[in-house]
Design a protein around this nucleic acid. Sequence first.
DNA 1: GCAAAAGTGTTAAGTCTACACCCATGC
DNA 2: GCATGGGTGTAGACTTAACACTTTTGC
Lengths: 257, 257
Amino acid sequence: MSVLTDPKKIALHGGKYFLPQLSVDCVILGFHDGELKVLLLKMHHSAHWALPGGFIYKEETVDDAAHRVLEERTGLKNLFLQQFHVFGNPARSSSKATVEYFKKEGIHLDKNSWLAQRFVTVGYYALVDFAKAQPHPDLFSDACEWVSLREAEDLFMDHSDILQKALETVRLQLNYQPIGFNLLPRKFTMPELQRLYETILGKPLDRRNFQRRMLAYGILKKLAEQKKGVAHKAPFLYSFDTQRYRKALAAGLDGGW
Amino acid sequence: MSVLTDPKKIALHGGKYFLPQLSVDCVILGFHDGELKVLLLKMHHSAHWALPGGFIYKEETVDDAAHRVLEERTGLKNLFLQQFHVFGNPARSSSKATVEYFKKEGIHLDKNSWLAQRFVTVGYYALVDFAKAQPHPDLFSDACEWVSLREAEDLFMDHSDILQKALETVRLQLNYQPIGFNLLPRKFTMPELQRLYETILGKPLDRRNFQRRMLAYGILKKLAEQKKGVAHKAPFLYSFDTQRYRKALAAGLDGGW
DNA sequence: GCAAAAGTGTTAAGTCTACACCCATGC
DNA sequence: GCATGGGTGTAGACTTAACACTTTTGC
């Protein structure tokens, strides 16, 4: 598949390559400095941050399009990436705003242009290892950066709603599926994992009960190593067993009854 | 909004009215005779059953389109209807098959027709009161009927996948949200509710524990009445408190941590 | 009166919560 | 040696699961 790399070509001729009026937007979450961060783009000529998004090639799977966006923005592939909601209100995009935006880019868009139409977007969320991601802006943005959730307000278009819905979904998911591990490096300590959970859930958890619960999932491997160069008692390192993890993800489906 | 009622007009000129390459499909579930049933359409000129679906008007919300489909097929509105997945594989629809289908309808579709394109579909599921629904076929089907899940095999296109995914979602949802009530009439007995849960989950439940659990949700009202004209001991009737029910749906979001 | 279905309560097992003590490290 | 953070264990509260007896009704 030939990837379009010229903004002008995309704006004027994207209609030839992409599915019309459908896009994907990705809420890419990372964890750093005890905070949840979301990867956002600083759009050209705009004070707003936006979620990384993209269009779907005519012969491409919608999921593949989301994976492509994720890879283009972070360099990461084959990650935990999940669709969570479709945003299908015609008022979410504005033809006028789009035309104006491209005018500032020096591109004249006709109001009948493929880009000036209403877009329905499929929201995806990804949980990624902050340290491994290498943020790259796209063709319509000046910067691609991790923004802490507290500061991620007043986003472009309805992206704040999309972000909120993603967070809601992640918190819910956390209740019955051990998805949190995706946010940590390969080796991590139990306290690190706990910080992460506390951050996502927004409340403190009991150290000992937390540990028991995590180990009960049966997907952690305690390594012989301990964290080095750290003040106080050195915590053990854990990694997680991808094999078992996949099973747990699938089995997560039946809890409760 | 003017609704299109002529199949030929839809086929040939639908492109003027609908969002391109995007559709909704509804998995409408009902409960009758101790069985889960799904509302399906018997397509013209086809041995396959299909899920009720439809297109989205250019100025219509995707959710509204799904509600419209639900209402058109069942006469019911304002029901529990939820999007659960986007099916976005380009191979899910076949241009050739579409052209052939319409040929049998006596309509010549160009392979460039809006209908002969790849479609991405948003899957919705609804849980409805079997007795209240009045099935109406659409313009492209001979019949609209409740089909028991056991018999709902080998559906049109990828509709079997969509149905499977819906069932998976419902079973999962049942774990943390009391959604089952939507399938029963306004007044129902505890044993009826239990049959329903057993059917959805595919396994027997303990009568006494089940009752406790349901009452613990705090959304049932025990009525003074008892079921009449029934063999053996008459069970009490219950109805559910829509007010509290909505709260419980919202609160369901935080279970676990 | 008997079979079938429904109402209700109790006990034991298991899980979760809260909490305390000991250990290792850096200063 | 003391402050800080991490490792581990346990008793009590609570929840869930298993189970039995009684009541009502139609035949």
